[in-house]
Amino acid sequence: MSVLVYAEHDNAALNKVTLSVVAAAKEIGGDITVLVAGKGCGAVAEEAAKIDGVSKVLCADNDAYEHQLAENIGDLVAEVGADYSHILAAATTTGKNFAPRAAALLDVAQISEISDVVDADTFKRPIYAGNAIATVKCGDAKKVITVRGTSFDGVAAEGGSASVENLDVVKDAGISSFVGEELAKSDRPELTSAEIVISGGRGMGNGENFEILYKLADKLGAGVGASRAAVDAGFVPNDMQVGQTGKIVAPNLYVAVGISGAIQHLAGMKDSKVIVAINKDEEAPIFQVADYGLVADLFEAVPELDGKL
């Protein structure tokens, strides 16, 4: 067995989720090779070479890979992946974009967002928005898999000493191009990797009121999320959304503020280690999953909490 792990990065640094994908690869077994594709991504390849358990790093550095366009990355992964029994990527918007494309090119199934490795052919994955967990077995010779990062504890970022090999495979389909991007600028930790996440819901009332959450988050080094209701109401941008249609998080501490706890929201955070709910409605379903519930007006409770930490 041999596993190819696709590295998630921004051409400058490796995204921590890659460490979780390597952890899933270790559970499958066999040699682990990491593929770094990007532009000017040499530093990322050096970083990947230090990951514990990685035996080789392949670096495909070319203009065609700068923006992770699925047309080019799909072709690259299908070609490089031909030599491996398993191809793993993170279940991020990048991984979800190219992995099915690569799988179809290889004429194999793709297994989405696995949360557990049973054996080299058998995996667990959530279906129906996490309301059921399916154990699935894939009979294809090659397995193309996306991995839910929060379900696997990342391996150590240091300790390995893999060799880095430059790949001169250039796949430029020439049918798509990058126009631009608007990335949310934030000094706070990224939601899916934050140790603490504080999320606000419709109860926040408006976008300005999120300031009290930002203030508390900065004190705790936390990321700030939101329910879909808060996003739909226009309080905050969509990339802050936690839930079935947003980000899946599993921090050590999740603080739900003014969130009622719709099933779609719970699907995105119920694997958090400790859940705190602050809501003035004692009937709110969020209290049924919270380890600690506080029935209180959030506009009094949050500043008070901030003051006492």
Partner: peptide, 19 residues
């Protein structure tokens, strides 16, 4: 190409306490 071996309900989270 993929067979479902089994389907289980997710682990239920127990409600905690109200402080």
């Amino acid at each position: 190409r993929v067979t479902t071996v089994s389907v289980e309900a997710p682990a239920e989270r127990q409600a905690g306490i109200i402080v």
